[in-house]
Design a protein around this nucleic acid. Structure first.
Length: 484
RNA sequence: GGCCCCGUCGUCUAGUGGCCUAGGACAUCAGGUUUUCAUCCUGAAGAUCGCGGGUUCGAUUCCCGCCGGGGUCACCA
């Protein structure tokens, strides 16, 4: 049975690139009626960030994804948190030592640093451990151990071998074993390094396929060696292109803006839009279809269609367009519900009082949603429906050529006479056009002045939609206040 | 620098020897929807397929070299 996994490290917030990796692994498992495992790789206690595990699990679920085995849901290979499986890794490390596939190393970090510095001084480009501790006699090793000397366990990389594997995405890859360092497997604090941890857990948990970022490609031969030494079967691997910012030939980073999934969500990107967007970052169905739900993605996903390229640009313009598209596709009432849930989830302040369950809110959404690219845009676009706008008098004068008082006075007069029952968009449109024609006003000066007086903004939805929604009393009040 | 991977419009990409006078989408520009912004519709511009050699009747597609980009060389993942 196909089984995939995603194994984040709780060293910060969940990265958008990690979400893509998760999504691909998830889709691959589901596509093949397999299982998807979530595992927490918290072996670096120096970079550990309190609470990040909980936030990661939350954001994954918020995006509508889940896991068949892992933290909180359990499974046959629990626990799914590496820091709770320490004895396991150590046993395998010791087993490797016994089989002469690994060895104790008592070198201090200071000595290793000096060793590397010396190597570099001699012009060695790729520094490697000099195997000082490999020549220790077993008596010396026992003595050091008995004296509680801190130690690590290193992989004994075989010499003069070419390690070959077939990557699901890249195809055949060859690595000379002589270029491999004697990787540390078990750290002096008793925690495994990533390399030991993944291999042991992936095997024990029955992982059959691994899709991960291309930064792991160079580690794959080390893993292959470990699998072989432990007598296990190596899962298939596929290495994904990394994400970069548009115009920058480097991986995405904090410096360029939002990179954590949470930040995008908080800014008002819909999970389905965000997911749809990252699906296409390194994968394409080979057709012109580009609107994808997760279910459709699972249906069409194939590893063969993942691109073997180096970097893929994370085009925020395109994300914004896609998000706007998804927003426009939602029914008005549904959008209101989403807006409410979003504000509650991320504790977003609108800056004005709005009951998103009201008919008025639905009406505002109706005329405003074509202009929204994120949920957060609602604040800018809709504020004047719920709170009195600040009307800049100087600006107002610009639209009317200094004639604003007369224009507004005339509109005030006109609208005063409209009965409450007749206060509907079509009627307002009709009488207003008749009115300006009779008074020799251009639509532009008349309606821009009106628009600005009533909303405090120069760009709004069609003016009569706005007037209709605002209601007679509010419109008259605002016209009056803009005149003075 | 050693090793490994990659190279089609600004961006995401389609393309697996002839269907390509290289297709789509975002972005850009122009026009339309008789007031703004946006949506929507139509159209335009935009890639000598990194460069140079081969192989072939024919190369974006196959091979080699070069150049460019990325990754990796930690008791981090």
């Amino acid at each position: 049975m196909v089984k995939t996994r995603m194994a984040p490290s709780p060293t910060g917030e969940f990265h958008i690139g990690s979400m893509r990796t998760l999504l691909y692994n998830y889709a691959f498992a589901k596509k093949n009626n397999g299982k998807f495992v979530l595992r927490i790789e918290d072996t670096d206690r120096e970079r550990y960030v309190e609470g990040s595990v909980e936030r990661m699990l939350d954001v994954i679920r918020y995006c509508g994804l889940d896991w068949d085995e892992g933290p909180e849901v359990g499974g046959p290979n629990a626990p799914y948190v590496q820091s709770q499986r320490l004895a396991l890794y150590k046993n395998y490390a010791l087993q490797l030592v016994e089989q002469d596939h690994a060895y104790y190393c008592f070198c201090t970090p200071e000595r290793l640093e000096k060793m590397r510095a010396d190597q570099r001084a001699q012009g060695v480009a790729a520094t490697k451990y000099d195997r000082t501790c490999l020549s220790l006699s077993s008596e010396q090793v026992q003595q050091n151990l008995a004296g509680s000397m801190p130690y690590t366990i290193r992989l004994k990389v075989p010499k003069d071998e070419v390690i070959t594997f077939t990557d699901l995405i890249l195809g055949r890859v060859d690595y000379p074993s002589n270029d491999l360092d004697d990787q540390i497997l078990l750290k002096s604090d008793g925690f495994p390094t990533y390399h030991l941890g993944v291999v042991v857990d992936d095997h024990l948990m029955g992982i059959t396929h691994i899709l991960r970022g291309s930064e792991w490609l160079a580690s794959t031969p080390k893993h292959i060696l470990l699998y072989r030494m432990l007598g296990w079967e190596m899962p298939a691997t596929g290495h994904l292109p990394n994400l970069k910012e548009v115009g920058a030939n480097k991986k995405m980073s904090k410096r360029f803006g939002d990179v954590s999934v949470t930040e995008f969500l908080r800014d008002g990107y819909l999970p389905e839009a965000l997911l749809n967007f990252i699906m296409l970052l390194g994968w394409n169905p080979g057709t012109e279809k580009e609107l994808y739900s997760v279910a459709e993605f699972i249906r069409d996903f194939t590893v063969a269609k993942i691109h073997s390229t180096d970097l893929v640009a994370f085009d925020r313009e395109r994300l914004a367009w896609l998000n706007g598209y998804y927003i426009r596709s939602l029914a008005d009432r549904e959008l209101c519900t989403r807006l409410l849930a979003w504000a509650q989830k991320w504790q977003v302040q609108f800056g004005f009082d709005v009951d998103l369950r009201s008919e008025k809110a639905v009406g505002v959404i109706f005329i405003v949603k074509d202009r929204m690219r994120t949920l957060g845009d609602f604040m800018l676009l809709a504020s004047y429906f719920f709170t009195e706008p600040q009307v800049d008098k100087l600006e107002l004068a610009k639209y009317s050529g200094g004639n604003q008082a007369a224009i507004l006075q005339a509109f005030y007069q006109l609208y005063t006479e409209v009965g409450q029952d007749a206060w509907v968009v079509n009627h307002l449109d009709e009488i207003s056009h008749d009115f300006i024609q009779k008074n020799g006003l251009t639509p532009k000066e008349a309606f821009m002045t009106l628009r600005f007086a009533v909303s405090g903004q120069s760009a709004t939805p069609p003016i009569f939609d706005v007037l209709g929604l605002l209601g007679k009393d509010t419109v008259l009040r605002r016209i009056k206040s803009a005149m003075t």
